[in-house]
Structure formats: structure tokens, C-alpha cells
Design a protein around this nucleic acid. Structure first.
Length: 111
DNA sequence: TTAGTGACAGGCA
DNA sequence: CTGCCTGCCACTA
């Protein structure tokens, strides 16, 4: 269990209902801007061992990337149940549902 | 130890 | 917008 993994877990757990996050976003917040694939491993390894809202984690395109059709469909149901709109392609509108924990502390943009 | 893998992301045509 | 290629980094055999 690396610090990175712990962070990933925390971040995923703080995703509110009705919101989603991308792998890259989580990886960045966890300290590895290019560690999206590690986030994948975490989900693979811990989604079933911990109580994580793994269904709120999607790829950059805003779609569900799970291979297994069962889990894929299940995730779509979970998201819709939280009020998130998911089309037939399993795509979510990131502009509308992507969760942003903090605009990076120190950088505010109020032009 | 090295090589391969993965529920990805970003850049470019 | 989509598709292809490359970089990525932790984990497994």
C-alpha cells in the first residue's frame, strides 16, 4: 500500500453523489498527474474490498470504460440513480457532472 | 531482475 | 468530433 494508493482511496471516497471524476483528475490530486493507470489498478484491487463509489470514476471522454458488460451496465444504473444522465453509449456530460474538489488552493480566477 | 499489463490521458492528423 | 500513437507508473509473473 503506497501513499499514492491511500490518497486515491480518500479522493474517491470524497466524491459526492451526483458527481463523477476522471482517472486523470484523481491521479493528479493524488500526486501523480500521469498516474491515471494507477488509479485503475486501485479500483481493480480495492473496489471490492473497500466501500468505494467506484462507479463515479470514469475516463476522460466521460464514458464508462469497464469491459465487463455486467459491471458496465451496473455502473450506468448507479449513476442514473444518483441523478446523472447517461446516454445509451454510457457517456456522461463531464461539463455538468465532473466533481471539482478545489480550484487548486492558491489559484483563484475571478476575472 | 526484467518484461508485460492496464476500468487512462494528451497530442496530433 | 474520431482514431492512432506515445507516455505513464505501480503491480504481477
Amino acid at each position: 500500500m503506497t501513499p499514492f494508493t491511500s490518497k486515491v482511496i480518500k479522493i474517491i471516497k470524497m466524491i459526492p453523489e451526483g458527481k463523477v471524476m476522471t482517472y486523470g483528475q484523481i491521479a493528479k490530486l493524488a500526486g501523480s498527474p500521469r498516474g491515471a493507470r494507477q488509479v485503475v489498478r486501485v479500483l481493480h484491487s480495492l473496489s471490492g474490498k473497500y466501500h468505494l463509489p467506484w462507479h463515479r470514476v470514469i475516463n476522460r471522454k466521460g464514458e464508462i470504460s469497464i469491459k465487463e458488460d455486467e459491471s458496465n451496465t451496473l455502473q450506468k444504473l448507479f449513476l442514473q440513480d444518483e441523478g446523472i444522465e447517461v446516454n445509451g453509449e454510457g457517456v456522461v456530460d463531464l461539463e455538468q457532472y465532473q466533481f471539482q474538489p478545489d480550484r487548486s488552493e492558491g489559484e483563484e480566477e475571478e476575472f
